[in-house]
Nucleic acid binder design. Structure first.
Lengths: 210, 210
DNA sequence: GTCTATACTACGATAGAC
DNA sequence: GTCTATCGTAGTATAGAC
């Protein structure tokens, strides 16, 4: 499908070269079509950019659906979850997120998203509403069940730090490979990062061992 | 000084628009000079880009000098540090790094660096050698003193996660402000993030409370 | 729907005046 | 050292053929 092909090429090019640096000519050529197809299907460069953001949001939310299943539909359902269950679900969600960050697919998404994080445009709004919001609020709900002693503010700050521990595997990939002393992240290193993330999250969730 | 002005404008523009998207014309104009000054002083667009990376590395390493003082000069000096002292120094280093991430100066640096992390070029090499290497290896040295039970591999993975918890304040700023429910990070939110980072780091360093 | 052809603007590099 | 002027290339958008 031509539109799909254009979208995926667009995500790659916009992520690599930025909005201004990317060229509709190159995107069209790499998708095996003429530049004017972009005008026809997406209305222009800007339209293609926003459509690319929507596409990423859809892929991301698809990927994390299992980890969010049945969460936040209503307060009574959430209240039935025990602290132990919430902890296990939280670890599963972090695992899923880490999987995404270590998965090759996320490379082009990340380049796109990271740019939007630094200099948010309307595309970030679409990414947030389309995928991130669900993920963050789900995490918060679970954290509140595990740590009823923490204030809402503390929970939100901690959620940001949890996010950082997983995002770093993608957003600072070059530094992570250096500190691990490897060229690329092999399944071995992926397992190591997963395990260390799990241990750290558990330590944090259990709180300071007075 | 013209060169300094050009460098700072260059960091801002390259960070915002990427290497291809940035325009030497605009950089020169915003610095109040002619485009050919860039050719004269830096040899061209590429030369300016690399000089910008060096400039960031210098600023970064200057900023974290106090936290790294007297570390890693020789093994005997490090061995004299107790676990408690090492913990305190590690927390101080994380605090300093978080300060940098929350400081306005790091906004333009971050845009530049984050691009290089995704798609490393020679500029990343300069950033790493000029600043990041020192910081990461110093962190590792201290972590090894606090947790002699952890393997080298585990320590390195954990260092990456620590890095993530601080970097997120800058690299995913747009998401962090959303999850905190604020427009910008005020001193209040900065203090909250600092405190939560400290608590989390301590929990991780103490290990699972069996 | 998809292509080619074209209009217009902006890019980086460089030569030469001062 | 810093400027203006110019060259060749490449960008987006658009009109019109098929």
């Amino acid at each position: 499908m031509l539109q799909e092909r254009l979208l995926e090429t667009a995500i790659d090019h916009f992520g690599r070269f930025g909005f201004e640096g990317a060229s509709t000519r190159h995107i069209a050529q790499a998708s095996g079509t003429a530049m004017s197809s972009i005008t026809y299907h997406f209305g222009g460069k800007q339209g293609l950019y926003l459509a690319a953001a929507d596409h990423i949001a859809k892929c991301l939310s698809e990927r994390h659906k299992p980890a969010l299943e049945g969460l936040g539909r209503d307060a009574t359902a959430d209240a039935a979850i025990t602290a132990e269950q919430a902890t296990e679900r939280l670890l599963f969600m972090l695992d899923t997120l880490a999987d995404t960050m270590l998965h090759p697919d996320s490379e082009s998404w990340a380049r796109f998203i990271v740019r939007e994080q630094q200099e948010p445009t309307e595309a970030f709004e679409r990414l947030y509403r389309g995928a991130m919001h669900m993920l963050l609020e789900g995490t918060l709900r679970l954290m509140a069940l595990v740590r009823p002693d923490m204030t809402e503010r503390e929970l939100r700050a901690q959620a940001a730090l949890f996010l950082g521990m997983t995002l770093v595997m993608r957003t600072a990939r070059a530094s992570v490979t250096r500190v691990l002393g490897v060229e690329t992240i092999s399944p071995d290193e992926a397992a190591l990062l997963h395990a260390q993330l799990r241990k750290s999250a558990l330590s944090i969730l259990k709180g300071p061992s007075a």
